[in-house]
């Protein structure tokens, strides 16, 4: 464990807590893409298939439970909770995510570390996580006034993977033989997808104006 990875995990956790806070307290998911939330739930399910048969540490185990539990409860809230579901803008959240799920699955079948079910599922979860934010970014472009919590949520989500990139650089230089091309490239693509959001988010924060993404 290193400081970049711990900061990355804490940033990831806080992004989920910000979203849960928004949905649970103001009972609204306005501006949040259910598609992205469902993709994240799928990412965690396919990534943590080995939660019971591969024990790394208490920390890993607990964080996996938290990520699984929170992502599934967010999907539940947005689908089942009356008030929250009413605030969901399904006419705007129209990204057809089979266009990302299938290619990620095919790619995972072709490029992976080992052609076993669990390894392919794990690789699929990496590729899927890299592009899972797309429905949310598309929705943000369509949402006129992005509220602060939504902006913070997306910012923290992008920042976590950027911190993971630093973690991989650190591990590359401190752990001989630490090479993870699949993880590194997926993580880099994921972070690059946030580039323009980061630009407009920091601009709105500096000029103290409402965050708005150009359509």
């Amino acid at each position: 464990m290193n400081v970049f990875r711990l900061a990355g995990d804490m940033t990831h956790l806080s992004s989920i807590l910000v979203l849960l806070l928004k949905i649970h307290t103001i009972k609204s998911c306005a501006g949040i893409s259910l598609k992205t939330q469902e993709l994240y739930a799928l990412v965690f399910i396919t990534r943590y298939l080995d939660i019971f048969d591969r024990f790394t540490s208490i920390y890993n185990f607990l964080m996996k439970l938290i990520f699984l539990g929170s992502s599934l409860s967010i999907v539940w809230y947005m689908r089942r909770h009356k008030a929250v579901h009413r605030s969901y803008d399904k006419d705007q959240d129209t990204f057809r995510y089979q266009f990302i799920v299938l290619p990620c699955l095919l790619l995972a079948l072709v490029i992976n570390h080992k052609l076993t079910f669990k390894e392919v599922m794990w690789t699929f979860s990496l590729y899927l996580e890299a592009v899972a934010i797309l429905p949310q970014l598309v929705l943000l472009q369509r949402t006129r006034n992005i509220d602060n919590l939504t902006g913070q949520y997306v910012f923290l989500l992008g920042a976590y993977r950027a911190l993971y990139l630093l973690n991989w650089v650190y591990r590359y230089f401190t752990e001989p033989g630490f090479v993870r091309w699949i993880t590194w490239i997926a993580g880099l693509v994921q972070t690059l997808l946030y580039a323009d959001f980061f630009y407009y988010y920091i601009l709105s924060w500096k000029n103290n104006v409402k965050l708005e993404l150009p359509a």
């Binding site: 790394t56 890993n60 570390h113 973690n167 033989g177």
Partner: peptide, 10 residues
């Protein structure tokens, strides 16, 4: 030997 992948990260 292909890079070992012990999935030690979240």
């Amino acid at each position: 030997q292909p890079e070992l992948n012990e999935h030690d990260e979240l």
